[in-house]
Nucleic acid binder design. Structure first.
Lengths: 189, 189, 189, 189
DNA sequence: AATGAATGAGTATTCATTCAT
DNA sequence: AATGAATGAATACTCATTCAT
């Protein structure tokens, strides 16, 4: 039941927003009563925290596996990280959007925890860039932190427009964006 | 007064979300009564539409000026468009965030109008890319629409992390991102 | 309207207790809506505080008038104070009972304010006793503070049993209790 | 377990009131579940009735022993009754306060039973007074019923202020109040 | 141009209680 | 002897909105 509440809530929070979704709507979708909701979650915010944690913990775990892969160089890791996010869209798009839009409705202690993990994810991205620069795979024209924000922008934005069932496959898109980041678009003269 | 209501609402909508902000909060911040609010706006949604329209109309207008500049080539126009957004952050960040997060709370007729303008903005971006390809300034490795989404991702994301008062100036950041998009980060071998 | 809400609430709080009375019950009795209640009081507790304050402020004011009366000796003042409370029962019984039973539902700041006034009332009673002892009107067999608690017990209890419309008039009862306190009940041998 | 539920409930009912205390609070304090509560009591009201009965039955029993003591005269019995209540405060204060404040939350049948016992207690007090008058130990200036209410007021009020661990011992306080009732406070001229 | 009073539907949350296990 | 899951009704309180003045 707890799982079903989470799934339903994710759909609704994505569609109508956290504050725009009422407990009543959630439980009616599941044909249970409000009491049932509060048996599993002590508050609406607690549910939101759960959703955030599940999402970011999973992301960090996947990221870790890629970064620790000894057989890949930095370029290959960059591609894998980009593909990972795009590949997650099919199953995670709603959670991802909730994650970027609804953090502000977490209070105090909760927001700290989430923010810490969010920053961890970003810093590990940045460390890959820095290592790539040190090992001569990447140029050092752009500071690593700014570069990281740029790359994160590209992939985070995919949650808002990319349709995995459309003409461009996940692999193709990941390849395109990796290519953009590595080679740029300027025609060589 | 109407203007003060809009300004206050923008701050609150950004901080607590559209549904998370009540008319009461808005008018209390201004030390007026709810009646005053309804003298200027016929509903909360109308206010939200106003905010959206002001934001996107301004953006499209600025975009138009840049695109119609006969003295700039496509590379220069790309830089200008990127700088334009970053430059707007100081005065518009909250509106921009509301624009990407709260559209779903506009209903029917309103949402169509806004979406049309949002798409117009994107298509004009894409047309610049396509023209650049035709004129041999950009490679055609990546489809123009995908490329556009990538670039929009980079600049939209700045609304969520860039601090115009920080170490990196707006010009520098625009230069870095233009450089990223044009030249990529791969070290030439 | 505010006054009508207070009156109705006093009756209900007395009959069913503060926590046992719902806002719904109050407003239904008055044929208005909950919104109306919250237009006049920002919370249920605020209403309770209002009731407490009105009651104790009135009591202290009346007490003050009696104690400052230059023409009465301590015995006469004692009688007047006793009569004052009994005489208030007709109009104030419910408030008085709420006052002794529901203070615990006031929180923090509110409870301090009320307790301070409650103590003021008791201390002024005690000062009368002390003055009576100093001036030789009363014996000093019993410490003034204990004596005060005893007298307050007698009169506070009347709120729970005395019927002003019954056989014993208010003046008679005040006389009986003054007599009990002054002369005692032991038959002189 | 049943006993532990009763003890915990008494503390909570005294502190927060009967309606202000939830079953959840009671069982959480005891680290058991609500099911456990309903294994021992068929309703919240039944628990309240239990508390009332235990309290008043014990009081009546103690009263009976004193009144039937053939070796005491009425004055001695009066002292013993007063001491009895004060002496009970240490172990019974909370029950006593619940007893005077929460009866109204008993319904129908229950309230009758409790009221009958409460009246029995008062009438037996009054009978002692009447006997004292008949036997010439007490004056008949004040009607026995009014006198009884006065005395009950003094002792019932002690539940709200007397601290058995304070400077005045239980014996001393009982002595003071007996003295007040028998001799009064007026200085003999 | 703005207020003060009011509404009715809705909010998150808590309640006492039930019952199969 | 006790639990875990669930209910349905109630709780205090807030909401966007209306309207006579």
């Amino acid at each position: 039941m707890k799982e079903r509440i989470v799934e339903t809530s994710i759909q609704l929070f994505d569609k109508k927003g956290f504050t725009g979704t009422s407990i009543k709507e959630i439980v009616e979708e599941l044909n249970v009563t409000k009491g049932t909701f509060y048996y599993y979650f002590k508050s609406k915010e607690e549910l939101l925290k759960d959703i955030h944690l599940t999402y970011i913990d999973d992301l960090i775990e996947q990221q870790k596996v890629i970064l620790e892969d000894l057989e890949k160089d930095c370029v290959a890791k960059l591609y894998s990280l980009i593909f990972m996010v795009i590949n997650n869209i099919g199953s995670n798009r709603e959670s991802a959007r909730i994650f970027t839009r609804e953090v502000r409705h977490l209070s105090g202690k909760n927001v700290e925890e989430i923010r810490a993990k969010r920053n961890l994810f970003r810093r590990q991205y940045q460390e890959l860039i820095e290592m790539g620069i040190r090992q001569g795979e990447f140029k050092d024209t752009i500071p690593a932190d700014m570069l990281t924000f740029g790359i994160l922008g590209i992939i985070n934005w995919t949650y808002y427009w990319y349709n995995p069932e459309g003409e461009v496959s996940e692999e193709e898109l990941a390849q395109m964006f990796t290519n953009l980041i590595l080679e740029g678009v300027k025609a060589s003269s």
